[in-house]
Write a protein that binds this DNA or RNA. Structure first.
Length: 489
RNA sequence: GGUCCCAUCGUCUAACGGUUAGGACGACUCCCUUUCACGGAGUAAAUAGGGGUUCGAUUCCCCUUGGGACUACCA
């Protein structure tokens, strides 16, 4: 039975790199079949952020990722859990870790360490000064049982460290092949902190085993500590999972993707008007590519094509331009009705109100032009006001005169006033009628259409006058044309 | 510093050891055009360097160089 997990820390938001890790876990398990577990790793009490768990769960759901087991939000927004391997929040599994640390102590695979932070610190600075490897000097390894008992009795704060054995640790990573490490160069990692909480390494191994995780798909930054985890599995006598270490997402300067140089919270992309499908598609193709002759994949196509073996080894720069392009593509592919729903919060935010019909028309006018949902309100604001401001000097086409502009607008007003409302309900019909008039009168498009469009929108850049007239309707269109004529008088 | 990982256009990437090294984003040119977009047609742009192995290396091996990650009682 395949079982995978995504195990974020609730430090406030879901990181875009975390999203990709979650996504690859999801794609893998949906392709191969099995169970996707969400586990919250909140063992660092100093970094807890209120609402962090809710945020992760909500953002994953926004992205279309729905774990089979783990925390979820019920109808009231309360955190609940589902699945038979809970609890799924590590702070609720507190006792488990101490128990397992105790087992390690008994097996001789770990030892108590009473070194003070000060000693550790001075040791570190000395090692740095001498340019020696920076690691714990294993001093407490040689404490006798009596000495340990004495410290314990005195209530000296201490930790439990892993007794890293000699030798080498070699393992096979699905993405990287064989990797090996010299054990003696690896630190005696703290497993249980002086506050009684476990570190990542202990909690992670204990939970992955107890939750019967078969494949660990995680970021490459965990590669160097994998030997520690393998040693723990061996000490407990457990079977280790299959590992797949994902390449990192990078800043433009090729350092690890960071807040400093990029938006890293998935939430921020949502707020900026990116569609979840676009984000998912984009992030899926960062470090993995099924064919290379195509860029746009539906969720199901991603699942069907997914294999861990095809994941790249090198890190991938997060390229905002390509994301923008992809979002544009997705906006254009998305049905108008859904866009209306998606864009609604952005209109509300911009304090733009209007009829459902007008929102639908606004979307229809701009869906070919905008990059993000957030651009809809600004791009279509002129549709939602009673009158638009125009500058008299901008009404004529640049190579024409105010006189011509005024004459054309007057003729246009008269012509359009004579047209039916049904004509105004059909964008193509408006276009055909106006173009027909231009030919009939022997006018040029430029001298006629520029003033018309500018009068209707008050903007130098906008959709065509036919589209705008359709969106505005007959009465509003005529009012705007008359206003421009007046301004030219 | 130490350990580990990585290396094809600016970016994301494709290429059973045999291709004019392909695609996409971006850039640029032209066409279309009332504006902004769209669209159409093109152009420039890469196998880091050096050694091997081989009839033949982008591809396999080694070295160099470069980049990154890790090096916490953070994950």
């Amino acid at each position: 039975m395949n079982r995978v997990r995504f195990a974020p820390s609730p430090t406030g938001f879901l990181h875009i790199g975390g999203l990709r890790t979650a996504l690859y876990n999801e794609l893998f398990i949906r392709k191969e079949g099995g169970v996707f577990v969400l586990r919250i790793e909140d063992t660092d009490r100093t970094r807890l952020v209120p609402g962090g768990i809710e945020n992760i769960v909500r953002t994953l759901a926004w992205s279309g990722i729905h774990p089979d087991e783990g925390p979820y939000l019920d109808a009231n927004g309360e955190i609940k859990e589902r699945g038979g391997h809970g609890p799924y929040i590590q702070s609720n599994r507190f006792d488990l870790y101490a128990e397992h640390a105790k087992i390690l102590l008994e097996k001789g695979g770990a030892y108590r360490c009473f070194c003070t932070p000060e000693r550790l610190e001075s040791m570190k600075t000395a090692q740095m000064a001498e340019r020696r490897p920076i690691m714990y000097d294993k001093r407490c390894r040689s404490l006798s049982a009596a000495e340990v008992a004495k410290e314990l009795e005195a209530g000296t704060p201490g930790v439990i460290r892993l007794k890293m054995p000699d030798g080498t640790t070699e393992f096979s990573d699905v993405i990287r092949g064989r990797v090996s490490f010299e054990n003696t160069l690896i630190d005696d990692q703290v497993l249980l902190k002086s506050d009684g909480f476990p570190t990542y390494h202990l909690a992670n191994v204990v939970d992955d085993h107890l939750m019967e995780i078969s494949h660990v798909i995680r970021g490459e930054d965990w590669l160097p500590s994998t030997p520690k985890h393998l040693v723990l599995y061996a000490l407990f006598g457990w079977q280790a999972p299959i590992y797949a270490h994902l390449p990192l997402l990078l800043n433009p300067d090729r350092s690890k993707l960071s807040k400093r140089q990029n938006d890293v919270a998935v939430e921020e992309y949502a707020e900026q008007g990116y569609l979840p499908e676009a984000i998912v598609n984009f992030v899926a193709l960062l470090g993995w590519n099924p064919t290379a002759d195509r860029e746009l994949y539906s969720r199901q196509e991603l699942i069907d094509a997914f294999t861990l073996e095809k994941i790249n080894r090198a890190g991938a720069v997060f390229n905002r331009e390509k994301l923008d392009w992809m979002n544009r593509e997705y906006i254009r592919m998305t049905a108008d009705e859904r866009l209306v729903e998606l864009a609604a919060p952005f209109f509300a935010n911009a304090k733009i109100d209007g009829s459902p019909e007008m929102f639908r028309k606004a979307i229809a006018l701009e869906k070919q032009r905008v990059t993000t949902l957030k651009e809809f309100p600004e791009a279509t604001a002129y549709l939602f006001v009673d009158t638009v401001e125009t500058e008299a000097g901008k009404i004529p086409w640049k190579k024409s005169t105010p006189g011509v502009a005024k004459e054309r607008l007057a003729a246009l007003a008269e012509f359009l006033a004579g047209q039916s409302d049904t004509l105004f309900a059909d964008m193509k019909a408006i276009e055909k009628a106006v173009l027909g008039l231009i030919v009939e009168r022997g006018w040029t498009n430029a001298e006629t259409l520029w003033p018309l469009r500018y009068a209707l929108t008050g903007r130098e850049a906008s959709p065509s006058p036919f589209e705008v007239a359709w969106a505005l309707g007959k009465d509003a269109s005529l009012r705007r044309i008359e206003a421009a004529i007046t301004q030219l008088s």
